[in-house]
Amino acid sequence: MNKKEERSIRHTSIHMTDERLSQLLKLKSSERPSQDFWDAFDRTMERKCLRELCVPSSMWTRLKHFLFSRKCLSSFSIAAAGMALAIINFRSPLSLPQASTSSSVAMTWSPSPREYIQDILGTPQPTKVLSSDIISSKMSSSRYVCDLVVHTPNHSCDTMTSSALACF
């Protein structure tokens, strides 16, 4: 037997095995339920459908369905994200270096960084912060920069105006 014939036989044998496997599996398709089975199936199905329609679902089931519904999950995630942002905003001043309590700036409201700087720059006694101070501080917070402005009376604020505002 030459190599070509041998290869051909091997190929046929593999092909037959595939075909045979498909045939064997197709046998499973001939496992068919009888008509009696389907009659019983329909009766039970009817009962289950009626139960589904007639029996009102419990409060807990409805709540569960609502809680796990896509709409609820998406609104919950939006609310959670909003709350997380609010917490971060609320906590951020506490994590920064505290400004002196003797500060003349009374923080009774929470201005935006731009408003805060503009407000300080508008005061009658302008102060100055070297831009190197701002850069070396490695603090990106506007409040920290502004605190520097307020509590360093020997400097004027002219030089920092553009750089500080550019930060925002």
Partner: peptide
Amino acid sequence: SLQAMDGQAV
């Protein structure tokens, strides 16, 4: 719990 095979269908 298997169903009987339909011999005709084979």
